[in-house]
Write a protein that binds this DNA or RNA. Sequence first.
DNA 1: GGAAGTATCTTGACAATGTCAGGATAAGCA
DNA 2: TGCTTATCCTGACATTGTCAAGATACTTCC
Lengths: 223, 223
Amino acid sequence: MATGASSRPPRPAVLPEPARKRYHHGDLRGALVRAAEELLEEVGPDRLTLREAARRAGVSHAAPAHHFRDLTGLLSEVAASGFEGLAGAIASSAAAAHAAGEDELSATGRAYFAFALAHPGLFQLMFRSQVIDMSAPRLDAASSAAFAAFADAARASGEVGDEAGGDPLARMATLVRNWAMVHGLAFLAIDGRLAGMLPDGATLAALTEAILAPAPAKTPAGV
Amino acid sequence: MATGASSRPPRPAVLPEPARKRYHHGDLRGALVRAAEELLEEVGPDRLTLREAARRAGVSHAAPAHHFRDLTGLLSEVAASGFEGLAGAIASSAAAAHAAGEDELSATGRAYFAFALAHPGLFQLMFRSQVIDMSAPRLDAASSAAFAAFADAARASGEVGDEAGGDPLARMATLVRNWAMVHGLAFLAIDGRLAGMLPDGATLAALTEAILAPAPAKTPAGV
DNA sequence: GGAAGTATCTTGACAATGTCAGGATAAGCA
DNA sequence: TGCTTATCCTGACATTGTCAAGATACTTCC
């Protein structure tokens, strides 16, 4: 029909964004994950939509099916990368605390909380097993790694005495208690449940800092 | 047409269930709330559907609109009654502990956790502000009452020293720390996050009991 | 008692969603 | 070059929440 040149559609010579209108996206998988992460923070996990993610990636509504089995597949991938980020944040905060001679467990708790507050929608998604597929290999590995990083920090801080004596159940109880406290605090803060209980003119940051600052352990009064 | 009696439609003399096929349901509002509670436990808050609730109540898909503004309205009502139940469970467990000379805070923590495990879907809904309307009067009042019951128990147990000295922020921090721990533990348990970290052959009940049993406070070792 | 008014429920429609089937296009490989 | 495969699109379907308009039953007022 048109010219005999090799380029069939009138492709513009200059592409403003990395590959604009070509049939093959190039990195649709990554673009969908990024779009989903955006949506997660803009509208939350409840209003996130596969079609809107496709729209933002500049692609038809059925295109994602070639990269993810379904919506659960995409969300599981996003959650997996979220857990990887969380594991990294925990590990690096523990290392920094160790270098500074501070308590590792307290530092990782603050890192955990900060991560949740920085990515509320993603954090909520990461703990919504009915929407993601926890048996997905990468997600399973990433979530395990995140908890392992937390457990390592607890061991390093001496909070979970692993040298002798203490039976495994009691040690695990101490570990999980710390985890649950930080996790619950993050969830309550994200959901806006702490706003209503700030004494007089106290800020939310002050309250959470007062909760997280001291090693949440048992220390004989004084000292 | 038919007989001249007052009953127009051929209404069966015996109604197997309380009012079967009449145009006006009688208690559609309550029936919808019950149907939603059922669905909450069967499929969870993510797959709960307004149309399915209407179906279970034996009513058309648009009928709920005359009793609840929209899906959020129905869910807010369900969440409100959930908080009322939670507040009751907390208060009664605290009273029982007081009578038995046990620690009130520990008892309420176990009651909180037990409530969450007994009604997982409802509990998740109660802490999903993007799906319910926290400004709904009844919901707002009920959630405040639940927290107030928890705070009362903490005060009674002496965990939150309200007599003198301690500044309000520190007292609130202790209170919220206890709440967050129990809340996080409940969420993690419901989401199946604790199953993977049971030492050898320990059961989940044993682990959670080990976490909740001692007053999660600072007690000088011994005694 | 009967008529008017209101609360309650139904039917039908709309846009939006997730998913599937089948066709079009581009890339890779022989 | 021609074939195969990966990638993407169009179109369709059932389902959802919500709205509009009509049908039905209850209430109230004369």
